[in-house]
Every structure is written in structure tokens, then in C-alpha cells.
Design a protein around this nucleic acid. Structure first.
Length: 573
RNA sequence: GGUGAGGUAGCUCAGCUGGUUAGAGCGCAGGACUCAUAAUCCUGAGGUCGAGAGUUCAAGUCUCUCUCUCACUACCA
């Protein structure tokens, strides 16, 4: 049954090209899922965008000596390029700074306020005179009132671990400029009254305890159990979405203030969908407006575990509180972290491997396979160069690459590069048919359930079964005495190559294309409409021309691993 | 401090509502094969399931205590 599926992956923040952890935890699995669902015939829309507002963007722009908007333009392009290099198949890669998101954000705020979910309150915030800006808690440092550590951050002391309030720091200074000329000022902000939504949110989350991963519901329930607090949704910043009245004028007292990035970022999912519609002539409402058919859309979100609270609590508060018929997420897949030699990947700390560096080291397919086969689903997953090497050499080069190579070359050499006819089924053919009839439905189930590690393991097992089949069928042995019997082995082998290429498409699209081109499969014969296995293994017409592709995967040498380990500091800390 | 997620073969990880001899891949050892990227296929060795106590006919799986790791803790995103 064809379904309409909306897929979003958490928006990558604008302040730099993302590292492999970001890729593995949201964009890549969303892409693999999107590709698989398209192959299954679903009507898929995969949306992503850069998240461009907030203090770090302003600071990064200042450091780069650019205006914030010029900086964001440049970084958006860089991230779009990085996404393309990893073959992320976004239907649209938008920007949270777009006009559409600006309008939507302002409208959401007005609707929420009209419904009593927004309230203006005064809070105390540290202002740095030298920097000419208010400082988020993390950008204020000073002496910890608890342990006297001198470089405690405003939100938490790194020395004693105690949670702090920046106004309690002794001798505070700006972490941006180092200036001690800071003062505490009263400032007005809008607060989203999440507490008033707790009951509805709890009912909603509880209704999903059986179909969302534990990671997702446990994080959401933790926040609810602790008691949801109202969250400030504006900031004292220049760069962002201005706070307007219904008449379009800036709200009184909100000059120099904008919406908090976490208020507008998820709204950018909608904004980017509208931008996609403008660009393509598509209909965005059927994905987002429940009064325009979005009830029939299945909405699936992908994100790292740090984003779960925003996607299960604050964004839903925005949606529900608006009183308007917006679509809520149906399924939510959250990932843990990919860890890097005992620690976290870190953009600011420049720890780990970044997308632009990774693509210089190895083709995107290598990374896609390894990151999906070792996805941080159940718990944090360790990245090591040795594991990466093993994935590529063993799974891709030896199991898949070599299989394609051995049978296509043999066919080219002995059967003139044409699918041969003749021969009769033996135990070997019965065995592979049974194997596939069990594994293929399971594979599809794993994809539909977004169980990526299991899907990858099953895919690999199917590839390995191809090698085992050839060992059983041994056409090179039969060839000496009975060419027809050799022919069926080659024919089944070639059909397996075609199938493997078809199955590989969501994971390693470049290689899948090479395989399918070599085996000469037209694009309309590449979908995941698996019928009977016997038919699948006799899909190639007799006499069909094939060619042997060049070596599909070159192996990663020990020297490469040594070089990378040294260059990237991949050593146990 | 609080909360959450984890601690299962040398390594990376599966093990749903408790039930026969605890699984996979990699790595390692032996064998088979020779079409293929010294690839593949088969077989094998390797685990007191973090520690301790409890519930049960039966616990990796449930309860409690302890311990270690990681994450989150609301103005980083």
C-alpha cells in the first residue's frame, strides 16, 4: 500500500561542517530510510535545512570577519555541498532564515499568545558592555561560588560539576572577549507556557510508548516527571526572527530581540516544505495541515538524543497550543552518540572527523555503510579506524565487491558476457531461493521499523549467501563436463548481482548504480517490488548483455589506518 | 546532586513479554576450493552475561544494594 511519508532530520546547526556523529545520528539514517521508502513505492518527502539563528552563529561570523548573513550564506552552501557529497537525497535542503519560516514563526507566536500559551516576563541576564551583547549562560565565566574554580561557566562548573546560575559567579567575565565589564540587567522575554500543556503532552507521549524507541519516550517522560517548566522563547540578539505584533510592527520593548533559535528551528521543517512547494509546484499542505489531508501522511523524524526534548515537548507545545490544524510527528527515531576514542565528537573542540575531511579520505559509500552498520541505535557506538577498515574491506570489498566481480568476470570470460540459458535446478538453487524468501521480507520489515543495524546485518547476510551459493553451485567445476549445468549457476549468480545492486541502493547509492549499470538494469526495474523469489532469480532475460565492472571497492591498507590515526589523533585518551 | 541510558566472547554489538548446550560480524586457528580484489566457503577455539544478595521449578532477562562509563539537567544548539 502506498503511503505518503514526510521525513525530517534534525537541522544541522550553521556554525561549521558537521562531523560524522551528526551525520550518523540524523541525516544519514533519514536518507537511507527515505531512499528505502521510495524504493518500496511510497510517496516520500525528505526535508532538511540549516539552523541558522542564535549566539554561536553571530560569534562564528564575527570570528570569520563576516556579516552574519554572509557567513550563513557561505556555511549553508558548504553544508549543502557536504550533504551532496554524501549523497543525502533531500527533496529540499532549506534554511531556517527563510522568509517562510519567519512568517510561520511570527504567526505561531501570535496564535499561541491569543490562546494564552505565551506570557511576557522579566528575567535577569548578564550583559557585556565590551561585547555590546547579552551573554548566554555558557558564555559567562567566573569563579565558582561552590569550589572557587576560576574558569567556571555560567551554567555549570567544569571542576565540581555543580549547576550554576551566572548571576552567582564571583568575578564574572565574558567568555567572548574576556572583558570583566559585565553587568546584570533586567530584560523582558516571551515565555512559552509549556507547564500548561503538560497534561496533553503526557497523554500524547504515553500513547506512543509502544511504538517509539525507549530512548525517545524515556527522555520525554523524564522531563514531564520532573515537571515541565515554561521556556523563554526570545533572546537579546540582532540575528534572528523579530518579534512582531499582529499589525506587523515590532512588539513594544522587543527592539533588539528575536525569537530563540529553538522556537523557530523546528518550524523551519514547515517553512522548508513550503519553500520546496514553491520551487517544485508541490503541495505542502497535504504534509502539514490536517485539514488538508495531512492526517493521511505519516511523519517520521530523525534526531540525536540531545534533540528529543525539543521534538517531544516544546515543538509539540507550539503545534498544539496554536489551536491550528498542524501535523504532529507520528514516529520519532532518536540516536545515541558515535563516540571517538573514549569521548564525544565535538565541533567546537575539533575532535573527530568532519564530513568534508571524511570525503577526502574515502568515498561516501564507505562511510555510509560503516556508519549505518554500526549506527548508535541501542547505545553509544564507538568509532575506530580499525572497525572502519574492517567494515570496508570485509563487508564491502570481500563479500559484496568480490561477489560481483567473480561472477561477472566469469560470465564475460566463459559465456561471452550474456546471460546463459540451460541447466536444471539443484539443491544449490533451492537453497538460495529458500534463503532469500526468508531474508527479503525480514529485510523490508527492518527498514520499515527503522532498525538500521539489523537491516545492514541482514543485507550483509544476503550478500554472503550469494558467495555461499556460488560455492555450492560451482559452475567452474561443472563447466568441464556439463556447460548447461554451469550456465544455471552463472545465470543465478548474475541475477543475484542484480538483486544485490537493487538492495544496496539506499545504503551505498554510488556503488549500487555501478553494479546496476554493469548488469544493465533499466531504472524502472530497480524498485523494491519483490515478487516470488524464483521469478526474482530469473528476472534477467536469456541473452541479456552484462559487463564486468571495475573493482568496486579498493581496500583500506594498514598504512592508511596508521596515517589517519596519526593525523586525526585517534588514540585512546 | 538529580534523571536517563549502558556495562554480554580479544574488538564492535544482538539477545522481545524470564524457559533446551548464551548469538552475529570482525580478529584468530585448521580445512576445502580456485571463478574472483591472497578473495570465497566450511569447521573450530574463546564468555562465572560489571559485583553481591533476593524472588522463582527456572534469570543475561524481574527486585534490591554496590560499582564503573556515558549523556541530559531547561540561556550551547
Amino acid at each position: 500500500m502506498t503511503e505518503r511519508i514526510l521525513i525530517t532530520s534534525a537541522l544541522p546547526y550553521i556554525n561549521g561542517v558537521k562531523h560524522l556523529g551528526n551525520l550518523a545520528g540524523s541525516m544519514l539514517p533519514a536518507d537511507v530510510y527515505a531512499r528505502a521508502m521510495r524504493l518500496l513505492g511510497h510517496d516520500v518527502l525528505y526535508i532538511c535545512a540549516t539552523d541558522e539563528h542564535g549566539t554561536p552563529a553571530e560569534l562564528a561570523a564575527a570570528e570569520a570577519g563576516q556579516s552574519v548573513s554572509a557567513y550563513c550564506d557561505a556555511m549553508h552552501s558548504a553544508q549543502a555541498e557536504a550533504g551532496e557529497s554524501f549523497k543525502l537525497s533531500y527533496d529540499y535542503f532549506g534554511r531556517s532564515s527563510s522568509e517562510s519560516t519567519r512568517r510561520l514563526t511570527q504567526n505561531f507566536a501570535l496564535a499561541l499568545e491569543a490562546n494564552g500559551f505565551i506570557e511576557e516576563r522579566t528575567s535577569k541576564q548578564v550583559y557585556s558592555v565590551a561585547d555590546g551583547r547579552y551573554l548566554p549562560d555558557r558564555y559567562v565565566e567566573g569563579t565558582c561560588p561552590n569550589c572557587a574554580f576560576e574558569a567556571a561557566r555560567g551554567d555549570q562548573c567544569d571542576n565540581c560539576g555543580k549547576l550554576l546560575d551566572p548571576v552567582d559567579l564571583i568575578n564574572p567575565y565574558s567568555a567572548v572577549s574576556g572583558s570583566h565589564d559585565v553587568e546584570i540587567r533586567d530584560t523582558n522575554h516571551l515565555y512559552l507556557k509549556q507547564a500548561d500543556m503538560s497534561g496533553r503532552l503526557r497523554d500524547w507521549v504515553e500513547s506512543h510508548t509502544s511504538d517509539w524507541p525507549v530512548l525517545t519516550t524515556s527522555i520525554a517522560m523524564k522531563w514531564l516527571d520532573e515537571g515541565l517548566r515554561d521556556r523563554s522563547i526570545t533572546r537579546d540578539l540582532e540575528w534572528g526572527i523579530p518579534v512582531l505584533n499582529a499589525d506587523g510592527e515590532v512588539r513594544e520593548g522587543f527592539e533588539g530581540k528575536v525569537f530563540y533559535v529553538w522556537f523557530d528551528a523546528p518550524i523551519a521543517y514547515i517553512g522548508a516544505t513550503q519553500d520546496w512547494a514553491v520551487k517544485t509546484g508541490g503541495d505542502w499542505e497535504k504534509f502539514w495541515r490536517t485539514d488538508k489531508g495531512a492526517d493521511a501522511t505519516r511523519y517520521v523524524q530523525f534526531m540525536g538524543k540531545d534533540n528529543v526534548a525539543f521534538h517531544t515537548l516544546s515543538f509539540p507545545t507550539t503545534i498544539m497550543g496554536s489551536g491550528q490544524p498542524w501535523k504532529l510527528v507520528d514516529e520519532l527515531k532518536a540516536f545515541n552518540w558515535v563516540t571517538w576514542y573514549g569521548g564525544k565528537f565535538s565541533t567546537s573542540g575539533k575532535r573527530g572527523v568532519f564530513m568534508d575531511q571524511a570525503i577526502d579520505i574515502a568515498p561516501s559509500d564507505y562511510w555510509r555503510w560503516h556508519l549505518m552498520a554500526n549506527a548508535p541505535e541501542g547505545s553509544d557506538a564507538a568509532f575506530t579506524w580499525e572497525e572502519f577498515q574492517a567494515s570496508v574491506n570485509s563487508d564491502l570489498a570481500n563479500v559484496l565487491g568480490n561477489f560481483v566481480n567473480r561472477i561477472t568476470k566469469y560470465c564475460a570470460g566463459k559465456f561471452d558476457g550474456k546471460v546463459p540459458e540451460g541447466g536444471s535446478k539443484t539443491d544449490a538453487e533451492a537453497w538460495i531461493e529458500k534463503e532469500l524468501s526468508e531474508r527479503l521480507p525480514r529485510l523490508v520489515e527492518f527498514y520499515e521499523a527503522r532498525e538500521f543495524r539489523k537491516a545492514m546485518a541482514d543485507t550483509r547476510a544476503i550478500w554472503a549467501a550469494g558467495n555461499e551459493y556460488l560455492t555450492q553451485a560451482a559452475p567452474w567445476t561443472h563447466y568441464k563436463t556439463d556447460i548447461d549445468q554451469a550456465a544455471i549457476g552463472v545465470r543465478y549468480g548474475l541475477n543475484l548481482v542484480a538483486l544485490f545492486g537493487i538492495l544496496a541502493q539506499p545504503i551505498i547509492p554510488d556503488t549500487a548504480e555501478k553494479i546496476l549499470a554493469a548488469i544493465n538494469i533499466p531504472s524502472d526495474k530497480r524498485s523494491w517490488k519483490f515478487g516470488e523469489v524464483q521469478d526474482l532469480l530469473n528476472a534477467l532475460p536469456i541473452g541479456h548483455d552484462i559487463s564486468a565492472p571495475d573493482v568496486l571497492f579498493s581496500k583500506i591498507e594498514d598504512d592508511d589506518v596508521d596515517t589517519w590515526t596519526e593525523h586525526f589523533g585517534g588514540q585512546p585518551t
